[in-house]
């Protein structure tokens, strides 16, 4: 089976956001980047799929040279091959998906794994965009997956329950927490990853369709009110929620 997994390289969530000098994106100085947590789940599912059916797992990231660090992590987990679609320009999800879909088409993937969303812009778009661009089915926010010959059953999380989806391969699956427990790279995996080459390709330039005019800090919240320090404050709290906030 030809298995593709798309991974994004994102700031870790502890990062303090400082807006860059252009006022549109963050200042990357001093920011720690990491493999997007949902994509780590995607990598694990790709590796499990290979264990079941054989074949190879190719991990692909679109971005600048720093994305290689994330590709190495995926190689260390056990992916066979890594590809950097090298474009340091800022792209929106559409422009990212266009180039990833082009790569998937050229490669001829049987199954494509993505994360349910990148934790930087929380777009949750790329998986669905790629699937539609390729004209194949997709299931997003997957917490359980059973692949059989040529078709699969996936369980996706929705408000107040789960949906059981029947579909067929090739398809795009986007991973949600709960699908699996990503493995830690072994020492051998880390050593092997250092020797595995990262292929670089330059994708076509694609214009973004969603353009940021400004990035700003959310309006500061007024200092809250400390109502008290024990159970005797309960009555006052409930009064405030009822009379001032009017939420109960």
């Amino acid at each position: 089976m030809k298995i593709l997994v798309f991974v994004n390289h994102v700031p870790d969530t502890e990062t303090k956001v400082k807006i860059g000098s252009d006022g549109k994106v963050i200042d990357p100085a001093g920011v720690n980047y990491m493999l997007n947590p949902y994509d780590e789940i995607g990598v694990e599912e790709a590796l499990k799929t290979k264990q079941q059916f054989g074949g190879e797992v190719v991990v692909v990231s679109l971005g600048g040279d720093p994305n290689k660090e994330t590709l190495r992590k995926a190689l260390a987990m056990g992916c066979d091959k890594a590809v950097l679609l090298k474009d340091p320009a800022i792209r929106d999800s559409y422009a990212v998906a266009r180039s990833l879909a082009d790569y998937a088409k050229e490669y001829g993937a049987d199954v494509i794994f993505c994360g349910k969303q990148s934790i930087d812009y929380d777009d949750a778009q790329v998986g669905g965009l790629i699937a539609e661009m390729l004209g194949i089915p997709s299931v997003s926010v997957v917490v359980k997956l059973e692949i059989k010959e040529g078709h699969f059953i996936a369980e996706r999380e929705i408000e107040g329950g789960h949906e059981i989806v029947h579909s067929k391969l090739p398809a795009v699956i986007t991973a949600q927490k709960g699908l699996n427990e990503p493995r830690y790279p072994s020492l051998k995996g880390i050593m092997d990853a250092k020797r595995k080459p990262i292929e670089e390709k330059v994708p076509n330039a694609v214009e973004s369709r969603v353009v940021t005019e400004v990035m700003r800090k959310p309006p500061a919240k007024a200092q809250g009110k400390i109502v008290g320090s024990d159970a005797s404050a309960a009555a006052e709290l409930v009064r405030l929620l009822h009379e001032e906030a009017k939420v109960i």
């Binding site: 919240k221 809250g224 009110k225 400390i226 109502v227 008290g228 320090s229 024990d230 159970a231 005797s232 404050a233 309960a234 009555a235 709290l237 409930v238 405030l240 929620l241 009822h242 906030a245 109960i248």
Partner: peptide, 28 residues
């Protein structure tokens, strides 16, 4: 959490929560 809270009680949840529940019941 207090930096984004509109209202806070600095106290032991085991005492405060049942008291809030009782007050809400009274209100409703």
């Amino acid at each position: 959490i207090f930096s984004i809270a509109d209202y806070g009680i600095v106290g032991d949840a085991f005492e405060v929560i049942p008291a809030i529940t009782a007050e809400v019941k009274k209100l409703l």
